[in-house]
Design a protein around this nucleic acid. Structure first.
Lengths: 295, 295
DNA sequence: GGCGGTCATACCGCGAGGGTATCGCCCGTG
DNA sequence: CACGGGCGATACCCTCGCGGTATGACCGCC
């Protein structure tokens, strides 16, 4: 009995996700651009089809059941997979192909120009479009908006992505030039204990919505409203009113090149190879410089 | 222009996948249980909606374009994500919850009884259903048919799964007792060069469709039709007419417990902890035995 | 106790999806 | 070279299900 057609349409998933996120049929319906009654019906039908109660409604409030919570999580992932499929297909069909690389402004440790040059020198290289985003570069790769991204592990989540490690960096605290700790040769995290947040970029300081751009963060630091702990490579591009001081016990950060773990593109493979090659060359060079005492 | 409603229904994806796999509208339609004309229309509509040519048809044959190939790959993944969502939701809604563990017969290195006992002793432990499968345990975890599985790395693909390493094992060649190499204390892969396939379980020997069950494989070995290289733990349960001889240069195999990488279940976490604890205890014990010369 | 808010039900209209019949095209074949 | 068979596309029709409007049932709150 209850044959249970194992297939659910993406429309139904999107409807459920909307309701589960809003916990309110009317708002969800408005967000979806439909009326409320069809939405109620669709959810009931979905529950009947799955043979599972997804929402607990008591005429005043809507709450998720255990099953509803898993469908919210899993349904989100499934919808993401569908739109990733669509986006990647569209891109694969473009007559004039290119690679899209997501990078964070100032977050490339100055490797990007060399990587681009090395790849461009590859036979059959495609044009590379750089798209800048501070916060959702990983998501862009996962959902097909970008072919690859420069990410910082372990700060950013790498699940579901294939990665090539480019560079391991220690971290520095960014401080106003006049700060009491600015003159120190080295700090520990404990030294920063009393300092205003965000200690880590991406965290949310009091009264600010979100640090979406590194210039904003640096501005906050200059104002004494925040202290940032960031990879040492940004010292090269620091504003003149700021200084970077090594933090000895901050966990090292790894700059990685990430791409969808089952990508099959010839061009992407060549790009990854080129990036790895540049990283190898550069880190060997800086290693040599360090050994010869120039750093 | 080309507003491009970014959503595609799972039905459309399933239709395209069927055509892409069959490369034949008639067969695909039969497989889907619909007539051929609506299928043709659906594919055309999908192509129009994506703004991309997916199939190259020349009145005699159907071939995939570049975009079609990526939609085949990505669409498959997306459909799998959808049915995984459905299955996991159904399971989460069951009134009497349980854990489903996928194992391979003989592939648990005899850890399973202890793991089950350790987990059962956990407060709030759920009943554990063991489901045996030789070939698709990884897929069962990925698509929600199982909560966790015992897998052998690197022989089996672990992408998309979270894992806990339980046991590293060296490998042995399984040979008929009368085999010319059966008396040797140790072999190398080179010694097996002339031997009949499959060297590795899961490979397809001439004239046989698939080794789905280890009993079949052992039977083939006993008949001299094949030589198997497997983790050493199976030596304990070998038929009396077979012997296991260590293969010095075969890459070691790791028995891992794998689960969906974003699972949130309290019960699963407890099970993983219990398994890791047992593995730690057992490998410490066998280490001690080895040191004291009993092996 | 009326009022507003929320979800469910009743009912209707229309469009999309599916079916049958047929065409157009190409290829093999006698 | 004519003809038949196989394949995908087109034409046409019908039905079912999705979405809309109107309304009901049930609460909490002034």
């Amino acid at each position: 009995m209850t044959a249970g057609d194992d297939t659910v349409e993406t429309r139904e998933l999107a409807y459920f996700v909307a309701v589960a996120e809003e916990l309110h049929f009317g708002r969800a319906a408005r967000r979806l651009g439909i009326a409320q009654p069809p939405l109620s019906r669709a959810i009931q039908q979905l529950e009947r089809r799955l043979g599972v109660r997804l929402l607990e409604r008591d005429h005043r409030t809507v709450a998720l059941t255990e099953a509803g919570e898993t469908l919210l999580r899993e349904g989100h992932a499934a919808l993401a997979a569908v739109s990733a499929a669509v986006r990647r297909t569209r891109r694969a069909g473009r007559s004039e192909p290119s690679l899209v690389l997501a990078a964070k402004p100032g977050g490339d440790a100055d490797l990007l120009p060399e990587i681009l040059a090395a790849y461009a020198a590859t036979p059959g290289a495609l044009p590379v479009d750089i798209v800048f985003s501070a916060l959702e570069r990983g998501a862009m790769v996962r959902d097909g908006r970008a072919d690859a991204a420069l990410l910082h592990a372990p700060r950013e989540d790498l699940t579901g992505l294939a990665v090539e490690e480019l560079l391991v960096e220690s971290q520095v605290a960014v401080l106003p030039r006049g700060h009491r700790l600015a003159g120190r040769a080295e700090l520990s995290m404990a030294d920063l204990d009393g300092e205003p947040l965000p200690r880590w970029p991406g965290a949310v300081p009091e009264g600010f919505s979100r640090i979406a751009e590194s210039g904003q963060l640096m501005h906050l630091v200059a104002l004494g409203r925040a202290v940032a702990v960031v990879p040492e490579s940004i010292r090269a591009n620091l504003r003149h009113d700021l200084v970077g001081v090594p933090v000895a016990d901050a966990p090292p950060t790894t700059l990685v090149l990430a791409w969808p773990q089952d990508a099959r593109s010839r061009a992407l493979a060549a790009f990854v190879r080129a990036a790895a090659e540049v990283a190898r060359r550069v880190s060997a060079g800086s290693e040599a410089a360090r050994r010869s005492g120039r750093l």
